[in-house]
Design a binder for these strands. Structure first.
Lengths: 133, 133
DNA sequence: CGGTATCCGAACCGATACTG
DNA sequence: CAGTATCGGTTCGGATACCG
C-alpha cells in the first residue's frame, strides 16, 4: 500500500488545505457508507446467505430501497447475487471476499453503536436541558 | 452489557421478523453515522484539536453543514467545544471520551475505505461493462 | 473568525401499483 | 417471490447574505 493511503499522516499543518485522505474516504463512504448498505452487510455477515424478502423483513426496509441498495452493493463488488430459475423465483445474496473484508470494520461500528446508544441518549438529554435554560 | 446487545445472536430463523439489533443500530447510525460526522471524527482523531475553519478547509465541507454537524456531535456528547472570548473569536473542537472510543471503529472504517477504493472502482467498471452488453 | 438565516435545487425514500 | 415504475413528501446540502 502506498504511503498516501495511511491515515495518520500529519505532515500538513492541521488545517492548511483539504486533506486528500478525507476526500477519498468521503468518496468511498458516499458509496458503501449509507445506512442501508451497512445494515445489509451486517445482516449478511450474521446469516451468511439471505433471500430478498428475508432481508426485507430483517431490516424493516422498503422494497424499493432494498432493491436499489442490493444492486449498488452487487455493482460495487461487496455482495453476490445468485438466482435460481424456479417458480416462484428464488434469489440469494451473500458477501463476496471484499464484502467479508468490509465485515470487520462494519461490525465494530455496529457494536459500538449498540454499546453507546444509551450514552448518546443521555448526552442529548443533558444538552437539551442546558439549552432550554 | 446485556445479552440483547450482542450482534452474533442467531436465535431467530434468519428472516422471520425484524432483527432488533438492526433497528437499534439503525437508530445510532442515523445520528452519528452520516458522512460528515464520520469525517469530522476522523479529522479530530488525527489532529487532536481543530478550529472551525481548519475543519472546514480540511474536509471540503460547506460552512452550513459543518456548523450543523458540529452542533449535533456536541449534543451527542462525541465532541467538545471550547470557546475563547478573544477578538477575533477562537473556537476549538476536540473529541470527548465517548468520541475517542468512537475513534477506533471509525478509523478502521476509514482505513478500509482507503484500501478498497480502487477495488470498488474496478468492480464497478466490470459490472457496467457487463450490463452494457 | 465563527457562526446564523434564507433560499432553492437535488437526492432520498416510503407508498402504491404493476410485472414475470 | 423478486423485482420495476411512478409519484410525492421530506431531507440534504451548497450558495449567498448577514451578524457579533
Amino acid at each position: 500500500m502506498a504511503d498516501a493511503c495511511t491515515i495518520p499522516d500529519e505532515t500538513s499543518p492541521a488545517g492548511s488545505v483539504q486533506c486528500p485522505e478525507c476526500k477519498r474516504i468521503n468518496e468511498v463512504l458516499a458509496r458503501v457508507g449509507d445506512r442501508w448498505s451497512v445494515l445489509v452487510i451486517i445482516s449478511l455477515a450474521r446469516y451468511g446467505t439471505l433471500r430478498f424478502n428475508e432481508l426485507k423483513r430483517n431490516l424493516g426496509i422498503s422494497q424499493r430501497m432494498l432493491s436499489l441498495t442490493l444492486r449498488q452493493l452487487v455493482r460495487d463488488g461487496l455482495i453476490e447475487r445468485e438466482q435460481f430459475p424456479t417458480i416462484p423465483p428464488k434469489v440469494e445474496y451473500s458477501l463476496t471476499a471484499m464484502g467479508t473484508s468490509f465485515r470487520e470494520p462494519v461490525m465494530a461500528l455496529g457494536q459500538w453503536a449498540l454499546d453507546n446508544l444509551d450514552n448518546i441518549d443521555d448526552a442529548r438529554a443533558r444538552f437539551d436541558e442546558v439549552v432550554e435554560a
